[in-house]
Structures are given as structure tokens and as C-alpha cells.
């Protein structure tokens, strides 16, 4: 019990409180509790035992390393799922044993064998001493005087100015070409045009209007998309979903005359942030986006009925060609996909 020279008696010594009325403002830190030795520090047999545990753990590590090397040479991979799985499992278990053995051994060593008596070290204020600071300020002042910058105002401007300008030498060429053509009007058009056939994704077979039965859903790409210079970019804008509705179920149409005998084609790119909207529930005619769950009613002009999207999915006006295949009447009449600043201009 630490008895410090203080105004009052120590707070923890109760019987004295009654006789020593002046009470301190704060409690006194009682100081570090007494250190208790571990069993291994006093019992030689326990000491031996703790050493053996550490040795055993290091042995596990070595065995793990050997096991991993054996697995590497003995177990081929890449023939089928079973060999890949087996290789991964045994290499991994070997690696884990090799690492955990070392880790647990070192920690066990530190915990059970190294001294566990807590030590105390004093902290020092982080701020540098007043003389040091004075010297530092003096050095800086000397340097500034040496440089002569305080007397030459123009020099200051020149330094700041040229340093501020020089990054342009890197930034301008970078920004100039990093965005490709910078022709952002491409967001507003897709490769759909009058007479272009609707084909099945991914096989590319054209679609006969007669085959599109009520309740079916068709994932559609424009004919010949693979022959365009940038098929993925075109596909990212042009994908379409085709459904046929019972005329009695249709509540409204987005583009009058844009459908063909109850067959509707809508952009498959969500007007929220651009995921493919593809979950079609044929009984309710609801189209759900699996990313953020915007729900569109295909029977009602692809209007949003739930979720974070605002605008209906743009409709692709379609008809049939003389062979009965579905074709587009034109490109989309508005930009597809997520909203952007000047999409209406």
C-alpha cells in the first residue's frame, strides 16, 4: 500500500478517515499490483513441460512444410474438379500448419517462458524543449535571410507560379488522351436502326414473331453485333428484352405503335445505374433488377413501380420484316441506361 505524503490520509484506509478529516480531492493511484510468478517459474517440472509444448509446435510447423512440399510434388492439379480441390486442400493445410506452428510456438514461448513481469517506463512530453525550438526558429530565420527571398517579392511569385504550372506538362497530355475520343454523344445512340433484326442472345438466331408466345421472355441483341468494331460497347447499350403480352393485360404503351401484336421490346439496361434488368415475372408482368431491385411494369409502359429507378425503361419500336422476323423500326427514341446531365439535350 503506497503511503504518499499527501494532505489527507489515503482514501483506502478507512479507519483512519474518521480521525483525519481533510479529504484529498482525488483518489490515489494504488500502484502496480504485486507480480505473481507462473507455475513454470517455480516448478522445474512445469518449466520442462512448457519448453516441450513450444518444441512440439515448432515440430508441427516443420511437418506442415514437409507436407506442403509433398503435396506439391505428389498431387497434380488441373485435370478435373476433384484434383483441383485435392491439390488446393492439401497445399493449404500444409501451409496453414507450417505457419500456425511457428506463430503459436513463438507466442507460447513469449507467454510461458519469457519474463512476464510488467515493467514501467516514463513518458516524456512530445513537444521539443524551449531551447531547441528557439534554435530551430533561429536556423530557419537564418536560412530565409540567406535565400534572400524576403527581399525579392518577384522571386517568390516566380517560384510559386512555375511550381504551380509545371504539373500541366504531365496533366494535359494525360487528360487529353485518357478518355479516348471524348465523344460523349455516343451515350445517346445505340446500333439499332430501321430494319435491323432482333436476334437471340447469345446464339444470334433471328426471332419469328409467331414464335414469341404469351408468357415467354427473349433476351435480345441486334443482328450482326459480333461484326462491329466494339461488340462489348455496343452490347452494353443495345441489349433488349422482348415479351408478348395478352392484349387484355396491356395498360399503357410507351410509344404508340411501337409494339407488334402485343410483342414489346424494352431496353434491358436499368435507368438507375445500368445493371441488366432481367428478372421477368410472367404472371405479374413485373421486371425486376437484381442489383437494386427497381421494378418495372412491362404492361404499363415499363413504368417504375418500386425501387430506386425513376424513369421507365426506354422502348424499342419494333415490327416484322417480310419474312416474319422481328426488326427494329428505329433506334431508341431516348438515351438508354442511367441518367446523366445532358441526356435530354
Amino acid at each position: 500500500m503506497s503511503q504518499v505524503d499527501n494532505h489527507g490520509g489515503p482514501a483506502d484506509n478507512l479507519p483512519e478517515l474518521r480521525t483525519a478529516p481533510p479529504v484529498p480531492e482525488h483518489f490515489e493511484n494504488p500502484g502496480l499490483p504485486e507480480h505473481k510468478p507462473r507455475l513454470g517459474d517455480v516448478d522445474p517440472r512445469a518449466d520442462k513441460r512448457r519448453e516441450r509444448i513450444v518444441l512440439a509446435l515448432f515440430a508441427v510447423s516443420t511437418l506442415g512444410t514437409i507436407g506442403m512440399l509433398v503435396a506439391f510434388f505428389a498431387l497434380p492439379t488441373g485435370r478435373d474438379v476433384a484434383t483441383i480441390h485435392r491439390s488446393n486442400l492439401w497445399l493449404g493445410l500444409g501451409l496453414a500448419a507450417s505457419l500456425l506452428g511457428i506463430g503459436l510456438a513463438a507466442i507460447q514461448w513469449a507467454k510461458s517462458i519469457m519474463s512476464n513481469e510488467e515493467r514501467v517506463e516514463q513518458r516524456h512530453p512530445l513537444q521539443s524543449a524551449p531551447q531547441v525550438r528557439q534554435a530551430a526558429v533561429r536556423n530557419l530565420a537564418e536560412g530565409v535571410k540567406d535565400s534572400g527571398i524576403s527581399r525579392r517579392g518577384l522571386l517568390k511569385t516566380a517560384v510559386v507560379g512555375s511550381l504551380a504550372l509545371f504539373p500541366l506538362t504531365i496533366a494535359v497530355p494525360l487528360i487529353g488522351d485518357v478518355g479516348g475520343s471524348w465523344d460523349v454523344s455516343k451515350f445517346k445512340h445505340t446500333m439499332w436502326r430501321k430494319g435491323l433484326r432482333l436476334t437471340i442472345d447469345p446464339s444470334g438466331r433471328p426471332i419469328k414473331a409467331a414464335d414469341v408466345t404469351i408468357g415467354s421472355v427473349w433476351h435480345v441483341i441486334p443482328d450482326g453485333i459480333d461484326k462491329t468494331p466494339d461488340p462489348l460497347e455496343e452490347k452494353a447499350k443495345a441489349i433488349v428484352l422482348v415479351v408478348r403480352l395478352d392484349p387484355r393485360d396491356v395498360k399503357s404503351e410507351q410509344i404508340p405503335g411501337g409494339s407488334y401484336q402485343g410483342i414489346f421490346a424494352y431496353s434491358k439496361i436499368c435507368t438507375h445505374v445500368g445493371c441488366p434488368v432481367a428478372l421477368y415475372e410472367q404472371q405479374t408482368h413485373h421486371l425486376l433488377c437484381p442489383c437494386h431491385q427497381s421494378t418495372f411494369d412491362v404492361a404499363d409502359g415499363a413504368r417504375v413501380i418500386f425501387g430506386p429507378a425513376k424513369r421507365p425503361l426506354p422502348q424499342l419500336p419494333i415490327t416484322v420484316d417480310d419474312q416474319g422476323y422481328l426488326v427494329a423500326k428505329s433506334d431508341f427514341t431516348q438515351p438508354v441506361g442511367p441518367s446523366f446531365w445532358d441526356r435530354l439535350r
Partner: peptide, 9 residues
């Protein structure tokens, strides 16, 4: 809820 995928599709 599942749509029909007929033999043409």
C-alpha cells in the same frame, strides 16, 4: 412467375 422458354427461344 417463371417465363416460358419455348423451343424457338
Amino acid at each position: 412467375s417463371m417465363p416460358v422458354f419455348n423451343d424457338a427461344n
